[in-house]
Every structure is written in structure tokens, then in C-alpha cells.
Design a protein around this nucleic acid. Structure first.
Lengths: 247, 247
DNA sequence: CGTCCTATTGAAATTCTTCAACACTCGTGG
DNA sequence: CCACGAGTGTTGAAGAATTTCAATAGGACG
């Protein structure tokens, strides 16, 4: 039997809507057998959320979870007087939602246009009970998010404004295009966040973000077009700027 | 059979060293049957770590995990130039270590004298494979830590120095003595961290922490004796100070 | 062409840090 | 018993980084 044929047979057991889905490989669905995937797919619905729209509200009862298929989601906390902090960014194929709890204590919003694949909480919990590997996947993602949150705490607490902005650009550059090898080539990407979001992510003001971007530009570490299109000629140099602002 | 008798029989199945252990109830061992607990206990060793001593080094291969039996552990990150950020505090009966990975990317140190119950990584992973409920417990703790990390990101990114210090005191007051009811009574506790640690936790300098403690003292929100013994006459008032420094 | 949204830049104000001096406690050893 | 030094914490004054306030510019869209 040729390799192609085997792949075809395998694919024929996978639900149609899952076949081209990234979540099936790197996402949580990778933990599921074709049977379980078929069961889950009967309860899913894919849809699109426009930029700036809320996906999961803070504090309210939500009964669905989602996989992110494309786009960037921001998780943010709001204080009574309007101050805001972004506490996480999520990319495809991340799982979206707080397992084993009815509410989030942060809001999930679409930073760009976002496509998701949603399913009821009850279905997820049911499958978890049958398939321990699924909880393991979720656990792995939670651990990854915790590692990222702690990395970010260092940035928020101890870095200068210039280092913060450099760190943000480095983070985006390494997350937006995951298949980037460790090449010496320039990296180009479109910023998924506007200045106000970057400021909320970094604990800075819009003006400071803007000034630091200008500085990094003048230092030759980045090149910016149309406010959003960033080129990093030397990723290693940008990486260094994440820890050493002043020289 | 009386209730007492049943409890006795039950206890007789529990390994001696586990009987009075907090981790058996609220900690991860609560997920284990008496048999599994007996198995695990054959591979554990309890010991004490003196204040300021390292428990788990950053970046190095570690082959043991632990439960915290008493004391406070700080998780911190260090930058090349010496800047430091505490990214988490752990109390009994928290689980200590990064599951499914050989290394931590932060250092765990004893902030106070600490007692732990340690066991090899291999034993934990073996039991996880047999007992999905254990992974669930670990997952729940990871989720809790993630929630706390994100709360702290808001504090680090968006709060003033005075709000940060108030938030820290509030955090300690609510964690050190978990059985505190929602009473109106004054709360007293001993600070488990010295000023330098508080500064590293809050992303401030020692001097700023000291000044803000003085301010909170003068505002009557706290009472401090011997630099370490803090009384909060009105927890609700302190809670408000976590979000509104200026009036 | 006007308006809204986004981003940039400058100058003044504020917050926090840095540098420096001093106070307190505790243990050690003369 | 006291002196000494290390470790810890407080306070003041000057300086630096970031924010705030204010003005301006460009692009998208009706």
C-alpha cells in the first residue's frame, strides 16, 4: 500500500470540517481519535468575529469553548477607573476558555479578525472524562501560557520602555510566523495590534510606545511602513535590545 | 459501625508520614487512593530548606518534584545585568516544579524556612499514567497559578507604587491565613518577605516600597511592628487602596 | 471635503529611582 | 559588657524616566 493511499484512508475517517484544521495537529484536537473527533465535530460551529469584538466576556457565565483557527485574540483586564492591561495574546491553534470554570476573570477580544471553532462546555467535559490525553493537552497549553505569563511579568516589572517595546516586537516576530527557522534573514510581519493595544500590553502609554518605536527605528533595529508593517533586519540584534536598552 | 471507627480504619490505610499532611487534602495527594499514596510515600523524603536557600535552580536538569509542607517559596527570574523579578509565590500545600519538563525557566527559593516532601519525577509520571485524577489536580493548580499570574500582570503593568504595595499586603493577608472568614475584624500576620523581595515582586525599588509602607501606615490602613508584623484594621479599606491610590 | 481613527512629536508635570546618610537589631568576639 | 560589622529598613534630595496635556498629520470612508 503506498503512502498516499494510507493517508487517504486515514483522512477518510476524519470529519470533513476538521481535515484542513490546524487545531487537529498542534491544537487540542490532536489528542482525539477519529471517532472522538467525529463526535466532537457534530457539536462544533465555526464562525468569524470582527476585529475589536468581544469573544468571551469577563465575569459572565459562558457555556462554550473555542479553538482559534486564525487571527489574534487578546485577553485583557479592566480596572474600575478604565485602566486596562492585556494579560495574554493567543494565536491559532490555541484553545480559548477557562476549563473547569464557568467564568473568566478577563475579557477575550478579537485583536484582528478571528475565526474560531466553538463547542459547548458540556461536550468538552464529557470527552475529557473519556480521554485523559485531552486533559493532558489542555494542561500542556495551560503550562505554556503560565510560562509566557511569567516571562511577561519580568518584562512588565523590570524592563525599561525601550526594552519593553523591543520585547513585544520580538514576541510578535517569533509567534506570527511560527515556521521561521533560525536564519539570519530579515523577518517581516504585520503588527496585529494597534498602538493602544501595545501600550496596554506593555503597561505604557500610547505616546511612550510611539516614541520607543521611533527610537528603535532610528537605531536601525526595525524598519516600519504604514505604521503596521515591520521588518527586523537582524533578529539577534533585536533580541539583545530586549535586555539592554542603554549601552 | 460508628463514624469514629470508620475513620480509624480509613486512616490505618494511609501511610504514617502522610496522615497529618496538608497536601493529602488540599494538595495533589488528595487525588490518590490509599494504595497509590502508599506507593508514592515509599519514594518520598521530607526535608527542610533554610531561608534564602535555593530549592530548584533555573535552567538546570532537576529530577525531583515536591509538595510544600510549610513556609513560603518565591519563584524568580534574573536578568543578565542583575535585575530580578519574582514571578510567583507558593504556599503550603502547593506542588513545586514544572510537570512534563526537565527544567524550570525560573529559580525557586525559600523565602522563609521551608519544609517539603520530595519525590522523583519518574514516580510522579508513573502515577499520572495510572491515575488521570492526579493530572487533573495538577492542571487545576496550574490554572490557579495562571489566574494569579495574570492578576499580578495587571498590578505590575497598571498600578501606582502605592496601589502595588497595598495589593501585595492584601495578597499576603488573604493567603497566609487561609481560614480567615469574611469578618470585619483586624487581620494580623507576619510578612514572609523582606523589603528587597517585596520590591522584586512589585517591580519597584526597596526605597519606594519602604516609602509606600510608611504612607499606608500614616493613612491608617496598616499598623506595623518590628518591620515585619502587620495588622490590617480594615481589610475592606485596604482592598479599596489596591485600586485607588490617589483620592 | 470634512470627520473619525490612528499615530507622532513637543513641552511641562509627575512618579519613581538613584545616591547618600542614618537608624535599628543581632550575633560575635575582644 | 561593650564594640564592631553585617544585614535590614527608613528618609531626604537630586535626577531620570515616563506620563500628561496639547498640537499636528495622514489615511480611510462617506
Amino acid at each position: 500500500m503506498s503512502k498516499i493511499a494510507r493517508l487517504d484512508i486515514h483522512n477518510s475517517q476524519i470529519p470533513v470540517i476538521c481535515r484542513a484544521c490546524e487545531a487537529r495537529h498542534k491544537g487540542i484536537c490532536g489528542a482525539l481519535s477519529p471517532d472522538e473527533l467525529t463526535y466532537l465535530s457534530k457539536h462544533t460551529s465555526k464562525y468569524e468575529i470582527g476585529r475589536e469584538h468581544e469573544i468571551v466576556p469577563a465575569g459572565e457565565d459562558v457555556s462554550t469553548y473555542s479553538n482559534i483557527l486564525s487571527g489574534v485574540v487578546r485577553l485583557s483586564k479592566l480596572m474600575a477607573d478604565g485602566r486596562q492591561q492585556i494579560v495574554g495574546l493567543q494565536f491559532a491553534p490555541d484553545f480559548l476558555g477557562r476549563p473547569f470554570r464557568r467564568t473568566n476573570d478577563y475579557t477575550a477580544e478579537a485583536a484582528t479578525d478571528v475565526r474560531v471553532c466553538s463547542f459547548p462546555r458540556s461536550v468538552l467535559e464529557e470527552i475529557i472524562a473519556r480521554v485523559p490525553a485531552l486533559e493532558h493537552r489542555l494542561h500542556e497549553q495551560t503550562l505554556k501560557e503560565l510560562d509566557e505569563a511569567r516571562d511577561w511579568m519580568l518584562t512588565l516589572g523590570r524592563k525599561s520602555a525601550e526594552e519593553k517595546v523591543a520585547s513585544f516586537l520580538y514576541l510578535i516576530a517569533t509567534h506570527i510566523n511560527p515556521e521561521r527557522g533560525e536564519t539570519d534573514e530579515p523577518v517581516t510581519f504585520e503588527l496585529p495590534l494597534k498602538r493602544a493595544d501595545i501600550a496596554d500590553f506593555l503597561g505604557l502609554t500610547i505616546e511612550t510606545v510611539s516614541r520607543q518605536i521611533t527610537r528603535l527605528r532610528k537605531r536601525g533595529l526595525i524598519h516600519v511602513e504604514h505604521n503596521r508593517d515591520v521588518t527586523v533586519p537582524d533578529m539577534e540584534a533585536l533580541h539583545e535590545a530586549c535586555e539592554t536598552a542603554r549601552d
